[in-house]
């Protein structure tokens, strides 16, 4: 009876240890089933979302990449990109298919229908400046409407006006300001017909003459200030499963490796011959004691060179 109770207690304790492991495994478990038609994560189910090709995946901050569990060939070594601020919308990292829950679908449908949450004026992709709906009116003044040839402006300074969905994950280019010599022109993509865009929904620079609004002085100042904006929208990919390995972003693991090895091979290992040589050099049983001091000197030089290496690395 005692044995049975002991086994029971051990099993209960063991299962307690397993609990957090199971919970953590479930937390990061992403499984694709039904030939890619359903993505499962815990109790949540996601389905593919047919987003327009011109949508830009442009979330801010950490994007967690979780390894996806899938038995087929199509999605081998695939990751699920998850933005912690809104887990109703996720994306396969390499395949780029977007998966959404019901709530996520509603958000993206509203975005597709032109319901934008906020705008950013983007210079050089990451440098951004908040842009308000009212700013469009200062950009699009009817008497400034003219035409520009866009075949040669693709390499000039470009400031894109991007509208975002409610989750802040996807963006759509509403238009762009082009610099031609010393003047700035705004092309409002949303009012242009389909013939101005390529098959992927991107603005086509082969179109030639395009209607554009020449910006007035105040609008130019606003655009110019975006160039020096201190705001930056930066995405940062995090690989939670690989945190334990010595990766590019893992300073702690690198520091532990650096110090453990340098202490072992730079101080502890040479300390052994150093101590032994001093003992032998002072032992009465040893003949020709002085020769042991060569070993003392060499192992001391070993330690000194280690100190030198550290000094050269930490010297400013």
């Amino acid at each position: 009876m005692k044995k049975l109770i002991s086994v029971f207690v051990v099993l209960v304790l063991f299962s307690l240890f397993l609990l957090p492991v199971g919970a953590s495994a479930e937390e990061n478990q992403w499984t694709l089933i039904d030939d890619g038609k359903t993505l499962i994560h815990g109790f949540k189910e996601y389905e593919p979302y047919n987003n327009p090709p011109d949508w830009i995946y442009f979330p801010e901050g950490d994007i967690y990449l979780y390894e996806m569990d899938y038995s087929g060939d199509t999605y081998e070594h695939e990751y699920v990109s998850v933005v912690p601020s809104d887990t109703d919308i996720v994306k396969l990292h390499f395949n780029e298919t977007v998966y959404v829950t019901k709530e996520g679908k509603e958000k993206l449908d509203r975005f597709k229908n032109g319901e934008y949450s906020f705008y950013l004026l983007c210079y050089d992709h990451n440098i951004v400046k908040p842009f308000e709906y009212s700013d469009f009116s200062s950009f699009m003044i009817e008497e400034n409407l003219t035409e520009i040839d866009v075949t040669t402006v693709w390499n000039n300074d470009i400031f894109e006006v991007r509208a975002f969905d409610a989750s802040g994950i996807f963006a759509h280019n509403c238009g762009a300001v082009y610099r031609i010599e010393n003047d700035y022109y705004y092309v409002h993509y949303d009012t242009l017909p389909n013939s101005y865009f390529d098959a992927y929904g991107g603005f086509s620079y082969r179109q030639g003459i395009v209607p554009a609004y020449k910006l007035n002085e105040n609008a130019v100042k606003f655009v110019e200030s975006a160039r020096f904006s201190s705001l930056a929208r930066i995405e940062n990919y995090v690989y939670p499963e690989e945190k334990a390995f010595l990766g590019e972003d893992d300073n702690a693991a690198a520091a532990i490796t650096f110090w453990a090895l340098i202490i072992l091979f730079g101080f502890i290992v040479p300390a052994v011959p150093l101590v032994l040589s001093v003992i032998f050099a002072n032992s009465k049983r040893v003949i020709n004691k002085k020769r042991w001091y060569f070993l003392t000197a060499a192992s001391a030089l070993w330690i000194i060179s280690t100190v030198g290496i550290l000094a050269s690395l930490y010297h400013h």
Partner: peptide
């Protein structure tokens, strides 16, 4: 400087081995 001390480290290790084996 780093390479200089790294070379010195190798020299010291070799010298230690030499002194030990000689003894």
């Amino acid at each position: 400087y780093f390479v200089l001390f790294a070379f010195l480290f190798v020299i010291a290790v070799l010298a230690t081995v030499c002194a030990f084996l000689g003894n």
